[in-house]
């Protein structure tokens, strides 16, 4: 595309990048690249299928912090597995940092919480979901997803709602029978990422699932945003939410995530 000043700018499409012409060499390279994009699940228990009636998945800084502070802070949870992602660099070693950890309640072992602290790339989200659900028993399974969403991306014609920068919305699968404690997500908004991958899987496999997204303008964990998730947890059942977590625990979590500015040093 030429501009008024004669320079030529490359034009890009928001929808598509042009396909390269196929050839056989590419297929081998793509296969090798795919092998390096594997999601590695490791269970500390050798059982093939984990018994599970209630699976809670927390993704996003505030959602993950909420489960850390309000749910997992009691002594009745034990880590039962984790997932890590292959290093995207095909020449590098596999990443040692788990991207998510699975916890089981010792008193009610069929309740599992999955806390996702890292980011799972778009091309690995489907695989992560299939592998996790491939490891849990699905009879009587109910799934709850908690996730963060930026309020700047929320579309609504009603400004009295979006002028508040902290609110919950949810989406549920066809087989879900609970009445969510917050409004359903309105058009034209969508969920993406792990909540979308999980909801898609559960819709197709008819697993009752509700995904909650807390829209806020917080870029790091804060106590007010974390508290908003308590409303979503009222429908989970089987799990006690700590009514008053210690101020030290919250402060430590918030401090850890604060960007340390050296502007005035």
């Amino acid at each position: 595309m030429a501009t008024f000043f004669g320079e030529v700018l490359s034009v890009y499409s928001r929808a598509v990048e042009d396909e390269e012409d196929d050839n056989d060499e590419d297929e081998d390279i793509l296969k090798e690249l795919d092998e390096n994009r594997e999601v590695l699940l490791q269970w500390y228990d050798s059982r093939h299928l984990m018994p599970c009636t209630n699976l809670i998945i927390a993704v996003g800084k505030n959602a993950a912090s909420f489960v850390s502070v309000y749910v997992l802070s009691s002594a009745s949870w034990e880590a039962v597995g984790h997932a890590s992602l292959s290093n995207p660099n095909p020449c590098g070693p596999a990443s040692a940092e788990p991207v998510c950890v699975f916890y089981r309640n010792k008193d009610t072992p069929a309740v599992i919480v999955c806390k996702i602290s890292g980011y799972i790339e778009e091309d690995q989200q489907f695989q992560w979901t299939e592998k996790v659900f491939g490891c849990v028993q699905q009879d009587g399974l109910r799934v709850t997803v908690l996730s963060d969403g930026p309020v700047a991306e929320y579309k609504n014609t009603d400004f009295s709602c979006s002028s508040s920068s902290l609110f919950l919305r949810c989406l549920e699968t066809k087989s879900s029978t609970i009445k969510p404690p917050c409004p359903l997500l309105e058009q034209p908004n969508i969920f993406t990422g792990i909540p979308a991958a999980v909801l898609s899987h559960c819709q197709v496999h008819q697993i009752p699932t509700v995904a909650y997204q807390c829209y806020s303008d917080a870029i790091s964990p804060d106590s007010i945003t974390m508290e908003t998730y308590k409303l979503a947890f009222t429908t989970v059942g089987d799990i006690k939410v700590c009514p008053l977590p210690s101020a030290d625990t919250i402060h430590k979590l918030v401090q850890t995530n604060q960007i340390q500015s050296n502007l005035y040093i």
């Binding site: 778009e122 989200q125 989406l171 058009q187 034209p188 908004n189 909540p195 979308a196 898609s200």
Partner: peptide, 8 residues
Amino acid sequence: VPMVGPNP
């Protein structure tokens, strides 16, 4: 790329 939404 996974995505979901309410009835379009």
